[in-house]
Design a protein around this nucleic acid. Structure first.
Lengths: 225, 225
DNA sequence: GTCTATAGGGGGATAGAC
DNA sequence: GTCTATCCCCCTATAGAC
């Protein structure tokens, strides 16, 4: 009945279940049962559950980040010596997550899984991010500095952190917004979500940096209450 | 040696361990060992692990949301009939999470735990959010509509979603930004983080809503590549 | 490569003495 | 209220037949 081989089927099912339920609460038995494979097949094709998790990630992470860099290359080529358009930088980072078609090979389930990885505890994913995401972050950090001259580096770090949070939560928590809005919002239109994210985050990045040690009007009002 | 009773000690340790390691990977044996309590004490004072999780949440959630509403009341009273300052609305929502002192009783560990809950799978937390957060969301939704006339309700829902993501990731993932910035950023100054968040998100909320079904410049450029 | 069977450990929950 | 001891379940991983 399945059209692919066992190893690929295990990866597909594991990707979806990990995205749905998290890693700790997804057992190898669930995966093999749903993939129509034997429990021992996981330990034959991969070595352990941790190695399976890393294999699920590795299959998508490489193409995803290659596509991000290619898009950023194109953005920089279009800009020439001129200023880098911030929206295009964000688009190069997001687009490969929201479009499943060629030449992007990233399955939508992996987007949700990626969102989950940022929150999941343990040093398994810290290593993944340090190894796989460091070059990506450096390239996009440089692009952001070029697009936002005058914004302190520290502030760019914070705003990238906010960006990752908004992105991760959007990818992994679409059911939340669907539930809390009583179905008002459409969570199926990936293009629309992508554009909403870019508009929102670009405006945040363009905000003037807060004053160092001063009287931020809102904060002081709150604390003086 | 401990100055509080067993029940309170279990709640304190559980709050911290749940924040550090997540729920699934924190066993009752870890909690009781670190709290200097017996394993059976958990099932005596609470009934089950799930009930313990809910008790950890319930202890903080009530005071947290009361404080949020009180701050929002003050913001609205100050504004009178005039426009609501967006930064103050955001401040009323964030401040009780970032300040541990009186009259706010929210332990900083709970902030990290709260950030984790949004991502954690399962319907345990969906129920918590639906029951505890619904009135809060409605009040702040109304305030946001008053502060941002002309912004479509659907867009406000999305931007609240982005806000929650940035907030949750900031609270639960401070180790990420510390690690990826090579220690450049200071993650200990809660006031500074709070102000950075407010500045960033207020700018995002003030951005014009994307056009409905048109040629968003960045998206069309990306898709036409 | 795929299966069965099982080892070996950790988990939540509970009974019953104190 | 607190302890010990234990039940019973599910987990990962592996050995070994096919």
């Amino acid at each position: 009945m399945p059209h692919t081989d066992t190893k690929e089927r295990i990866l597909d099912v594991a990707e979806r279940l990990f995205a749905d339920r998290g890693f700790a609460d997804t057992s190898l038995r669930m995966i093999t049962a749903e993939a129509g494979a034997n429990l021992a097949a996981v330990n034959y094709h991969f070595q352990s559950k941790d190695a399976l998790i890393l294999a699920v990630i590795a299959r998508r992470m490489g193409p995803l980040n290659e596509r991000r860099l290619a898009l950023l290359d194109a953005v920089e080529a279009r800009a020439g010596q001129g200023p880098l358009p911030l929206e295009d930088i964000l688009g190069a980072f997001f687009e490969p997550l929201f479009r499943g078609g060629a030449p992007c090979v990233v399955n939508p389930n992996f987007g949700r899984l990626l969102g989950r990885m940022y929150i999941e505890p343990g040093d398994l994913f810290s290593r993944v991010f340090r190894d796989q995401m460091a070059p990506i972050r450096n390239r996009f950090l440089g692009a952001a500095q070029r697009a936002l001259p005058g914004l302190p580096l520290e502030e760019i770090f914070w705003r990238m952190h906010f960006l990752i949070g908004a992105l991760a939560h959007t990818m992994s928590g679409l059911h939340h917004i669907k539930a809390t809005s009583d179905g008002l919002v459409d969570v199926t239109d990936a293009d629309a979500i992508l554009e909403r994210l870019i508009v929102f985050l670009a405006a945040g990045f363009r905000a003037p940096a807060p004053v160092k040690k001063g009287e931020g009007p809102c904060v002081s009002q709150l604390s003086s209450r």
